[in-house]
Computed example of a mutant assay.
Amino acid sequence: MRLVQLSDIHFGGENKEAVEAATAWIRDARPDLVVVAGDLTLDGKTPEFDAAAAWLKRLPDPMIVVPGNHDTPFVGPRELFERFTRTWGRFKDRFGDEDGAAWRAPGVTVSSLNTARAAQVRWNWSKGAVSRGQIRRVVRELEAAPAGDLRVVVCHHPLMEVLGGPMTAKVHGGVDAANHFVQAGADVILSGHIHLPFVTAVPFGDGKTQAIGSGTLSHRERGAAPGFNVIEVEPGCVRVQALAYEHGKFNAWRTWACDRRSPNENGAA
């Protein structure tokens, strides 16, 4: 099974050449699932959402889309009004519910949660948050997955800080969420936000749950060229290849290979 993981396209500030090249690459690859892990827009403006929706229609189905912190309207009086009265209206009108998108095919179960918030009891609203209700729902979905399924969680913010990352996520409830998802058997937790590809083991349970972050297709680069991830799922292994757009084409920037749990294993220590 092959998954494509995209995030942080930031329409309004997208790298147009990289976006077009990614479109062609993904259409040719015909992945089993396209995951879009948030920040489709730059400022949450209607034309940016329209551009993002038009682009995603060019990519193959099936697809899961979750929002990021940039996908709330916040530039201009009308946008600020909508931010607090219809926070996810623009997103929902084009991509469906902002929280709880799920997908299943033979061998894989995918759950998602929205870690972005319109406002928080802290100055930097762009950081992430996870509620107890979201944790409970995702845990139920993971535990209901058939034995042997690759259990995938999708969100925008990395639930735990990435060592050496170019920026922080500081997700309220993130460590607790990661711990619960590991115990429920999550194999991979896909995110974006920091604009730099990474793969790192979540330090709970048996250490086999991998946090996987994808880069950006915008001009807001932070240590890597614009790109996205390709995830190959094999019976005993998950392989991740971060592709980077350089010199007019996508090349492998870095690759990782991670052991999978056997069907009779779970996430508990």
Rank of each mutant, 00 (worst) to 15 (best):
D39E: 05
T115N: 12
V138E: 04
L56Q: 10
T23V: 07
Q183N: 13
V4N: 01
D43N: 10
I189Q: 00
P31M: 08
R132S: 06
P60C: 00
F181S: 00
G107K: 00
V65W: 09
D39M: 08
L33F: 12
A184Q: 05
V19G: 08
D187A: 01
P60L: 09
F95L: 07
I189A: 07
W55Q: 12
E143G: 00
G89V: 14
P67H: 10
V138P: 01
P203G: 02
R132Y: 03
L40C: 02
H172G: 06
S7Q: 04
F204W: 14
V182H: 00
V230K: 02
P263E: 09
H180Q: 13
P203K: 10
V66E: 12
G89C: 04
P146R: 08
G248P: 07
H247M: 02
D32W: 07
G89M: 09
L3M: 13
N114C: 14
A51V: 11
S112L: 11
Q120G: 14
Q241M: 10
S262A: 15
R83H: 07
P62V: 10
A224Y: 13
G174P: 07
H195S: 04
L59S: 03
G223E: 12
S112E: 03
A186E: 04
R30K: 01
R261V: 12
G128E: 08
L163A: 11
S214C: 14
R86Y: 11
R2S: 07
R222S: 04
V171R: 05
G236S: 06
D43I: 13
V75K: 13
L243R: 10
G13R: 15
G44R: 06
S214Y: 09
W253R: 11
V121W: 14
H193C: 06
D149Y: 00
G164W: 04
V162I: 12
L163K: 05
S191F: 11
T115V: 15
G165D: 13
H10W: 13
D61Q: 14
L113A: 04
H219N: 10
W103A: 05
W253A: 12
D71T: 14
K170H: 06
G165F: 13
H156W: 10
V130F: 13
V35M: 15
K92Q: 11
F74E: 04
